[in-house]
Amino acid sequence: MIRREIFVRYDRCVGCHSCELACAISHTAARDLFGAILGGEKAQKLLWVDQVGPVKAPAVCRHCEDAPCVAVCPTGAMHRREDGLNLVNLPQCIGCWMCALACPFGAVSRGDGKAIKCDRECLDEEGVPACVRACPTGALVFKTVEEFEADRRREGVTSLK
């Protein structure tokens, strides 16, 4: 299976938080900003934009192939699904936060006393995640490793000119 990942072009992030908002909206029942507000829904974002000095950067679960969060989970709530996504089975989660401790990206969050994280339950009709779709500058891209690295190589070659 060819899997696309969410890559970040850090130099393009302007810190607008559009990805966070789109993520939160995609996880509401209304799946629409105005509808969710009018419906009084509480929305939960599953990625974060942080700023350190002049650097602004979105942090989102990398869905690691050898995931530390999965490895340390004592109950098996955090698991790797067949399609390669790392997900939480909420009934099994005991809220011990070992996954949060282990995640090198800070991509685990607390929701109702249990671990929640990027679940990719946000894809549009073209299979693109809401955060990527919402990014106005192209800082977030959804590509295969091969595609992204090919772009990287081309950028590198261009800089040699």
Binding site: C16, H17, L21, A24, I25, L33, I37, E41, K42, A43
Partner: peptide, 24 residues
């Protein structure tokens, strides 16, 4: 931008821009 759509982006001073979470 959802912050602009909901009126939650303020650029009235140079400490901003500020954006409020529309979901509270």
């Amino acid at each position: 931008c959802g912050f602009g759509e909901t009126g939650l982006c303020c650029r009235h001073c140079l400490q901003g821009p500020c954006r409020i979470d529309p979901f509270g």
